[in-house]
Design a protein around this nucleic acid. Structure first.
Length: 247
DNA sequence: GTCCATGTTCTTTA
DNA sequence: CTAAAGAACATGGA
């Protein structure tokens, strides 16, 4: 039950969150790709995208400077009130209201963790973009970000500039496994904290210590000792080992 | 002052 | 039609 709200600032300016949320019950909280989805009891959805520096914190010890939204959630089965704060220093994150009747993920491709290799192959077969660009396209496959694409391509030993449609069935199968392995490892280590990332308890992740290529330009490849290279592709930093990942 | 940044989306260009 | 490239968004750290 949402019992009270103190909105600092609406992340989406045209949104009247107070009107939308007052008296609503949150039926469930789930994740879809990079979105945290709240299912409301009127069948609408509200989702939070953390962008690059966003963080949702439960019962924060103190309020940070860049807190844009504070929700006070009512009691539920004796749990007591709970404060949920959304802060985002760089404000690339967003809060989106999705009205009843609209799927909160209508604009997203499938989840990589449950995507069979054969379907991945079909998705990649009809695009002539570099594989790195294809994997970052959220309408094609949803949930992979820059770090994890670089890490997965290294694990699969595929060069980021290879055209997506040029991958053979064996390469696609390897890539599919590499994507899943990379994501599971990253989740197990609670994400990559390069600078800002914190989880809902304010804790840093540690997966950055296990990066094979990301942010390691000029350092030695952990497999073959060759210097890791960095190029810019689709406007994004792209890291790879030129020896392990041939074109 | 400069450059760069875990992301998305729009516009321009080809 | 497809897709690449660039800019924009806002802020802070190196």
């Amino acid at each position: 039950m949402v019992s009270e709200q103190r909105f600092r600032r609406h992340v989406e300016s045209s949104l009247d969150l107070r009107a939308i949320l007052t008296g609503r019950r949150i039926l469930s909280v789930s994740r879809r790709a990079k979105r945290i989805v709240l299912h409301l009891d009127n069948d609408a959805h509200l989702y939070i995208h953390l962008g690059m520096t966003g963080a949702v914190t439960l019962n924060p010890a103190r309020e940070e400077r860049h807190t844009h939204l504070v929700l006070t959630l009512g009691e539920h089965e004796g749990s007591g009130v709970c404060i949920l704060a959304f802060s985002d220093p760089r404000r690339f994150g967003k809060l989106v209201y999705v009205p009843p009747g609209v799927a909160p993920d209508h604009d997203l491709g499938p989840e990589p963790l449950t995507l069979p290799a054969r379907r991945l192959g079909r998705l990649l077969a009809h695009t002539r973009r570099p594989i790195k660009s294809a994997l970052l396209d959220q309408t094609l496959i949803a949930g992979l970000g820059n770090i994890y694409v670089d890490e997965a391509l290294f694990l699969a030993r595929i060069h980021p500039l290879r055209l997506a449609c040029s991958l053979g069935v064996v390469e696609v199968a390897t890539l599919s496994r590499a994507i899943k392995t990379t994501l599971r490892r990253a989740i197990r280590h609670r994400g990559s904290t390069l600078r800002d990332y914190r989880d809902a308890n304010g804790e840093s992740g540690s997966f950055q210590k296990l990066h094979r290529v990301y942010d390691r330009e000029g350092e030695k490849c952990r497999r073959c000792r060759t210097a890791i290279e960095r190029i810019v592709l689709t406007g994004r930093s792209t890291h790879f080992c030129p020896a392990c990942q041939k074109r």
